[in-house]
Design a protein around this nucleic acid. Structure first.
Lengths: 231, 231
DNA sequence: CGCAATGAAATGGTCATACGTTTTGAACCA
DNA sequence: TGGTTCAAAACGTATGACCATTTCATTGCG
């Protein structure tokens, strides 16, 4: 996922620093300064800056330098930026934002999936729900996470909407973060697992309303747990 | 919004060509070829390619060249890419995707706005609803569009979720496209205007449920109209 | 004293060229 | 036949020069 080469190194250093606020809005960087600081050529610095620019993190102006743009300008849907924020000081805020987004999108996606999913996808969802039941009971969090992420990604994919589908990776990042930071009960809630099963069965049956409602219960539940933990 | 300078020119040429499929998935470009074709230096080509790369439109590999990635890899939330697709052959598909996204997001945003909007925002929504009523009756489509876009942007902003807020610009692009391409009745539906008023009043009153329901009616209605027109 | 015109300095933008590095594939040899 | 070596192709990086724009200080005039 990460960009290769020297510009990638710059990016991996500057991006998180900006995303976390360590380099504040309005700060000014100069190409020459970055050349020296990272001991790379102008070419490399410029390419890295271009990438930051295309995420709307910075703007480059002659005779001024490279200025960090206000957060409100940032391209908050950029997956790379989301990853940086999830890894840094902004993690709580980012998780909340994504939580709300999930509440909005995933129920709709589940409803659409009930209509548009193909046979493979319906089968996969059924199988994943079963796996989740088993790994949930056994307490194998790593495996549970894998199946959970796959489940949601499959639903989003099956919605037939490319934009929803693309949120699969992001949702996975959220779920992984939740597990890695021990924000989950040690044994996933029986209740949540049952809801996943319900979503799967509704989608398999082509029942959009039920799929949507069950999925809404899942994601609102997740958001509530998140809010509870973040205090 | 557009990137400045020569790399911007390349981008404005290559990006839409890729987005429209004119340059197909799997196509291979070479830096040298682009240098000659656009009569610019390697530096410029590389910076433009970096930007395309950060949208996941292309991948650069040694000894191979710059290959156009499959559409499923594209960063479909990137505002620049969305603009390109709206302007090109992909317009119908992009409008449908965005329509579904609106159906998912805007009702949720309206519900949140009823809780989180500040006084200025509530006032602004009331005023905008009034404006829409008037310009809707008078048939001044340009003014109506402006107020409509502002209305939705304000709701998204007032939701307090930065990710929702960022969809304001995208929604505006959708609405503008709808007007410019004459996909709208000459006099905006009395019904739709009344729903906007209802959203505004619910948000002003702090009634999340009603705000959400009315907004859902607006966006599902818009999606149905869109589907009807796109056939 | 105030303000406009001017000019110089700072900084990003672009170019041309050279060379390093990785990857691919073909030639070659055991 | 199969593995190894080698060379060509393309991107990756570095350098140094110069251009273009913007800002700010200075100057000069009213």
């Amino acid at each position: 996922m990460d960009i290769q080469g020297l510009p990638g190194r710059l990016l991996a250093d500057l991006g998180p620093a900006i995303a976390s606020g360590e380099i504040a809005e309005g700060s000014v960087l100069r190409i020459e300064e970055l050349e020296e600081r990272f001991d790379v050529s102008r070419t490399v610095v410029r390419e890295a800056v271009r990438m930051l620019e295309s995420m709307q993190l910075v703007a480059s102006r002659r005779r001024v330098g490279i200025t960090v743009r206000p957060r409100s300008d940032w391209d908050v849907f950029n997956p790379t930026l989301i990853a940086w924020r999830l890894a840094g000081a902004d993690r709580p805020a980012q998780l909340r934002s994504l939580g709300s987004l999930r509440v909005a999108v995933e129920p709709a996606a589940a409803g659409l999936a009930a209509v548009h999913a193909d046979d493979d996808q319906r089968r996969a969802l059924g199988a994943l729900a079963t796996e989740m039941t088993m790994t949930g009971r056994s307490g194998d969090l790593a495996a549970f996470l894998r199946h959970d992420a796959d489940f949601h990604a499959t639903v989003l994919q099956a919605s037939g909407n490319e934009m929803f589908a693309h949120l699969g990776a992001t949702v996975e990042a959220v779920l992984r973060g939740r597990t890695e930071h021990h924000l989950m009960p040690h044994h996933p809630e029986e209740y949540a697992v049952r809801l996943h099963r319900e979503v799967a069965e509704a989608i398999m049956a082509g029942d959009a309303t039920t799929a949507e409602r069950a999925m809404r219960a899942i994601v609102t539940g997740a958001l509530e747990e998140l809010d509870a933990v973040l205090d």
